[in-house]
């Protein structure tokens, strides 16, 4: 699509959408959001970019092929589930670490659940882009 306005706008949009998608991913445990929604938003950003500037530029911007991203995501999710094995818990039992925990405040929560959600994000993001790019290129 040869639209200068769209091309110029999409560069800012893709950055905003990716940042927004990470925001959605991180807030997901307590507010609306999460890995699935985050992955969708991030994918939409790159879809817009691919439509306006072509899939070649979009692929270049991604650096990794979307299939690799999706496969890595599945591995990350699996790893998140396997982390429970380190403490002898059942597969997929959430493991939590609260940094700077005080009486009133839980501090900065880090968890295997977040690792799993990042995996979900990457799978959704990679799968959708894989599909859209292939369609753009082949049809």
């Amino acid at each position: 699509m040869n639209s200068l306005i769209l091309m110029a706008g999409s560069r800012i949009l893709v950055a905003l959408l990716v940042v927004f998608s990470i925001f959605m991913l991180l807030r997901g445990h307590n507010e609306p959001g999460g890995g699935f929604i985050g992955g969708l938003i991030g994918a939409v950003g790159f879809v817009i970019y691919a439509i306006s500037c072509g899939t070649a530029s979009a692929r270049e911007a991604l650096r990794l092929t979307p299939e690799t991203i999706a496969a890595v995501g599945l591995g990350v999710a699996l790893f998140g589930g396997l982390m429970a094995a380190f403490t002898g818990d059942a597969f997929f039992t959430g493991q939590w670490l609260f940094i700077g925990e005080t009486e009133d405040d839980k501090g900065l929560p880090l968890s295997s659940v977040l690792v799993f959600d990042v995996g979900v994000y990457l799978v959704v993001f990679g799968s959708i882009l894989s599909l859209v790019f292939a369609m753009e290129e082949e049809i």
Partner: peptide, 19 residues
């Protein structure tokens, strides 16, 4: 440790299904 029940179900209580 999550207030968004939908997300907690997806990534913790039913994580194997999500996987």
């Amino acid at each position: 440790y999550g207030r968004n029940i939908v997300n907690v179900i997806l990534v913790d209580f039913r994580a194997l299904d999500t996987f």
